Simulated assay, not measured.
Amino acid sequence: MHEWHLDGQKVITLTPHRDGSGWHVIYLHGGAYIHPLARPHWGIIGAIIAATGASVTVPLYALAPENDYRRATALMHSVYDTVQKQAPGASIALAGDSAGGNLALNFTLRRRDMGQSLPQRLLLFSPWLDLELRDPRIRALEARDVILAVDGLRQAGAWWAGDANPACAQLSPLYAELTGLPPIAIFQGDADIFVIDARTFAARCVTARVECDYREYPGAFHVFVGATFTPEARDVFDRLSLTMPPSG
């Protein structure tokens, strides 16, 4: 494990004990942009390494409400450029759960719009796709979700947006133009209020001719992959091992 810093923010890089696969994953943790990386995130990261043989870099980005999206976005550009320079032959994937999935998507969309190189793959675990959760069907599902609540998320989203509109396409990728994105894999439980927007997003990927492997798991809760011992989580990591074969 190697710790380094950019703009006063810690970044951690982990490498597999055995020969790597040629993949490098940049992993962005969830927590509604207000909570730091937690123990279940390390379980997900460890499972990704075990399944794919990838090295994984984890930016511990500055959180709201003290910070908005701008500082994390600047960090991501620096981290991505550093990974490209230090591992020039690697295939890069961006991965994230919940808010981290939101950040991974938004960052990739920005790079596309700037004409910069894109990751080879996006891996999204229960991604947060609309910071304002505007689809009215979400409220109807809220009673089934044992983790998330709409009102608290909307407040966290407003903090993250700062003086920007949290509903804008630059922060809520559900409403972005998706053409030109790399292949996306989404792993989503149906006992999670984010499932409503995940289904809509997957359908929009099809319309935009973006390759999207959408997997929905009955009864699974928000970021169920954090319970790495469950059959649903094991299925996800088995699929990653198949979709991220050794490269380079």
Rank of each mutant, 00 (worst) to 15 (best):
L131E: 10
L131T: 09
L131G: 00
L131A: 04
E132N: 12
E132P: 00
E132W: 02
E132A: 11
E132G: 10
E132D: 11
L133P: 00
L133K: 05
L133A: 06
L133G: 00
R134G: 11
R134I: 10
R134Q: 10
R134E: 13
D135G: 06
D135A: 13
D135S: 09
P136Q: 03
P136A: 05
P136E: 08
P136D: 06
P136W: 05
P136H: 03
R137Y: 04
R137G: 15
R137L: 13
I138E: 03
I138D: 07
I138T: 07
I138H: 02
I138G: 00
I138S: 00
I138C: 04
R139I: 09
R139N: 12
R139D: 09
A140I: 06
L141G: 01
L141R: 13
L141T: 08
E142F: 01
A143E: 10
R144T: 11
R144Y: 06
R144V: 09
D145I: 08
V146G: 10
V146S: 13
V146Q: 12
I147L: 12
I147K: 10
A149M: 07
A149G: 15
A149I: 08
A149V: 12
A149T: 14
V150M: 07
V150E: 08
V150K: 02
D151Y: 04
D151K: 10
D151R: 09
G152Y: 00
G152H: 00
G152R: 00
G152L: 03
L153T: 01
L153M: 14
R154F: 02
R154K: 14
Q155H: 04
Q155A: 11
Q155T: 12
A156W: 11
A156C: 15
A156S: 15
A156P: 08
A156T: 10
A156H: 10
G157P: 07
G157N: 06
G157F: 03
G157H: 02
A158V: 12
W159Y: 13
W159F: 13
W159T: 08
W160D: 08
W160L: 12
W160F: 14
A161N: 07
A161V: 10
A161Y: 09
G162I: 05
G162P: 05
G162W: 05
D163A: 12
D163T: 14
D163K: 12
D163W: 06
A164F: 04
A164R: 11
N165F: 01
N165E: 14
N165A: 13
N165H: 07
N165L: 07
N165M: 08
N165C: 01
P166N: 12
P166R: 08
P166I: 04
P166L: 02
A167G: 13
A167V: 01
C168D: 14
C168I: 00
C168P: 00
C168K: 01
C168F: 01
A169Y: 00
A169Q: 07
A169P: 03
